[in-house]
């Protein structure tokens, strides 16, 4: 559904489903966690797409499917026109080089016993790129690229700050010159002041290397400035997608609206006219009938608990899956939202 602006997308995700079977004791077959339920997503070359949603929305699972860490139960993932979900080893090997993950917590994504130079060099060693001297030069280049001073190269991760650790993780991810980085909450574990530095670094790398970025976050404020497009996930589905300006200024799905209202605005004069989300995300083992958001939705109508809403197109990029939004051309902003949600 979400499509990049022009050209064949670098990454094309079609109808990806990931279910984790639940095993209780010796007997199996006690249902499944429906983590991702039929997601379509595309990322163009050099494009930054953000995937947002609260915990349990399946955004991280989708990210793992895309980096090949887990295999989707169904659906297809094409990378640069080649199918990589469940394809031959060779195709996956090449794909692995070109799609690299960046994890949330840099403390656990770096081997605590390895000097950072060795961590950055690991992918070069794995693919036997160049000789020893060439690899050492490449490591220096990568450290410079992510803004790490050369004298830190023999440090262990525990001797670095959180921001420096995340720079190391990004340098290691960049070693194989990937086309796409899948960053799963890369700044959530960092201090707010450091978050901005890492976000600027990612934006800068995109400019300099033409890198595409799939940015997974639960916080809209983090992604607002670096993304081209946004896809909002709820309980394994993409409920709304579009360009940043479309989604932020004209949200069509009530869930997106709630997320935007949850962004803290440092403006004391602004009245507290926020819509708040009440309650927890429902269990992905037994997702609600019809629209998965209807039990928490402030504008739900009868049909919402019956029929699963289809994606409605609002502009060339902007889509949302909501019966109410589809029924009215007017933006949801005209609806009263004093009422507590749910």
């Amino acid at each position: 559904m979400a499509e990049p602006t022009g050209g064949r997308p670098l990454l094309q995700v079609e109808g990806v489903v990931k279910r984790f079977p639940i095993r209780r004791g010796v007997l199996r077959g006690a249902g499944a966690v429906h983590a991702v339920e039929g997601v379509d997503l595309a990322v163009g070359r050099g494009e930054v797409v953000s995937l947002v949603g609260e915990s349990g929305s399946g955004k991280s699972t989708l990210g793992k499917c895309i980096t090949g860490m887990i295999r989707p139960t169904a659906g297809r993932i094409h990378f640069d026109g080649v199918e990589v979900s469940g394809s031959s080893r060779g195709a996956r090997g090449n794909f692995r080089r070109r799609v690299q993950p960046v994890f949330q917590d840099p403390r656990s994504s770096l081997d605590p016993r390895w000097a950072i130079e060795r961590t950055i060099r690991e992918p070069l060693d794995a693919f036997r790129i160049g000789n020893k001297a060439a690899r050492a030069a490449r490591v220096r280049e990568l450290m410079d690229l992510v803004g790490l001073p050369a004298h830190l190269s023999q440090r262990k991760p525990s001797e670095l700050s959180g921001g420096q650790q995340q720079r190391v993780a990004i340098a290691a991810a960049l070693a194989l010159e990937p086309d796409l980085l899948v960053a799963d909450e890369p700044v959530s574990a960092l201090d707010v002041s450091v978050q901005a530095q890492i976000l600027n670094l990612l934006a800068d790398l995109r400019q300099r290397l033409g890198l595409a970025l799939l940015f997974i976050a639960h916080d809209l404020s983090v992604i607002e400035h670096i993304s081209d497009r946004v896809a909002v996930m709820y309980l394994g589905r993409i409920v709304e997608s579009g360009t940043v300006s479309e989604v932020f200024t004209d949200p069509r799905h009530p869930y997106t609206r709630a997320l935007i209202d949850a962004i803290p605005r440092p403006d004391p004069t602004q009245r507290m006219s926020r819509t708040r989300l009440i309650g927890e995300i429902p269990s992905p083992v037994n997702p609600p009938s019809g629209c998965r958001f209807h039990p928490r939705c402030p504008v739900a109508i009868g049909v919402c608990s019956q029929d699963d809403p289809q994606q409605t197109t609002f502009s060339s990029q902007h889509r949302a899956a909501c019966h109410v939004a589809a029924a009215q051309t007017a933006s949801l902003s005209e609806l009263p939202h004093e009422r507590a949600w749910l």
Partner: peptide, 8 residues
């Protein structure tokens, strides 16, 4: 997991 995706 990261080492795996980096081809180790």
């Amino acid at each position: 997991l990261g080492a795996r995706t980096r081809g180790a």
